[in-house]
Computed example of a mutant assay.
Amino acid sequence: MTPTVIKIGTRGSALAVAQTQTIASSLTAKTGVAVEIVTVKTEGDTSTESLASLGGTGVFAGALREALVAGRVDVVVHSLKDLPTGVYPGLAIGAIPKRVDPRDALCARDGLTMDELPEGARVGTGSPRRAAQLRSRRPDIEVVDIRGNVDTRLAHVAEGRLDAVVLAAAGLDRLGRLGAVTEFLGLDGWPTAPGQGALALEVRAGEEKLVAALNHNPTRTIVEAERHVLAILEAGCAAPIGAHGQIDDGLLFLDARVYSPDGTEKLTSSHALYVADTPHPSLEVAERVAAELLENGAARFAPVGGAQ
């Protein structure tokens, strides 16, 4: 039975609230059901420790999921790149709306691009994947581990503490901050986190119909392939792994790249298959990609094989 008011749980950050408000408006428009937004405080919001030391970006999901299981909310909105790949008992992803821009973006002082940053430039990120990519692309710069919301990170640049930061284009767009971008980083040379740019609407198992109207099947097929690579490699959300999928004329393409933390080594695998040729296209293409990465030695230099 559909509730008269659907309670949607979200983190309290400006970005989380902005993307949840978008989902709330879409859900009401599609279903006619009233929506209430409930803010939930998470460990990732209150701790000042680095994401890597906290166990990855999955720390943002725990409290939201607890609120869902307890019945305090009916739906929670996650940034899919922050959601652990392991199954959470009693919960299910009811919908993945259409994905927006999955790229990373450089926000630098004086309009600088990645290649224009001076030697020794200080570039901030809280992501081990982005840190490895920065060290691979520009071994002459200093990578600085930072925390904080989008405005806090941009302020580091505006106030001269950093020369640049790397952020998700999707988050900047949702906050109306695309004007801070000095370069969008192309996916071919800079693959991003599995699921980046997509949202996941999680519900209690059996209640998927609450949000099913917002599901976008092509997006779901693509991001599930990206996330299956993480799951098969048993790598956490904070591992230095980038992946990007796309569907073109019925063909599902998947590229994934694993970096050593210091950026000195990287491995890439790319495979494709027709979505209509198999009942589980996302899993099958991911298995091919992950098998090739492991065969070529990914476990030798990347922190894969950890618990989710």
Rank of each mutant, 00 (worst) to 15 (best):
V123Y: 00
A200N: 07
G12V: 06
R122K: 12
D151L: 07
P194T: 03
F184V: 14
M1P: 11
L175G: 02
A286F: 13
G197D: 06
L106H: 05
T85R: 11
A16L: 00
M1V: 14
L293N: 13
E159D: 10
L162F: 07
D140K: 11
E292F: 04
P191N: 07
E295F: 11
R11D: 03
A235H: 03
T28M: 14
L91A: 02
A169V: 09
E142G: 00
G56R: 05
A164V: 11
A231W: 07
T2L: 15
R204C: 12
G148R: 09
T125I: 04
R177G: 03
F184G: 03
P281L: 04
L267M: 04
T221N: 02
I37W: 02
A193D: 09
L283V: 15
S282C: 09
A168R: 08
V144I: 15
G176K: 06
E119F: 13
A238F: 11
A67N: 10
T125Q: 02
V258C: 11
A205V: 08
V223P: 08
T221W: 00
D277F: 05
L27G: 08
W190L: 10
G189Q: 13
L293G: 11
T31R: 09
R109C: 09
L162M: 06
A70C: 11
Q308P: 06
N215G: 11
F60W: 04
V285S: 10
E265T: 06
A105G: 12
A105K: 04
A225Q: 09
R288A: 08
E49S: 14
Y259P: 06
A105Y: 07
G195K: 01
S53P: 11
G306V: 14
F184M: 14
A132Q: 01
A18E: 01
G120P: 08
V123T: 00
Q196R: 05
E207G: 04
D115F: 01
A299S: 07
G58Q: 05
L15Y: 00
V100P: 07
R122Y: 10
E116T: 04
A200W: 04
H244V: 09
S260M: 12
E116N: 06
T48A: 15
P89M: 01
I6S: 03
Q196W: 02
A61F: 00
I146P: 03
R227K: 15
Y88L: 13
L80C: 10
Q196C: 05
L254K: 05
I8E: 08
L254Y: 05
A34G: 12
R109P: 01
E119G: 13
A63D: 08
T125E: 08
A193V: 06
L294P: 09
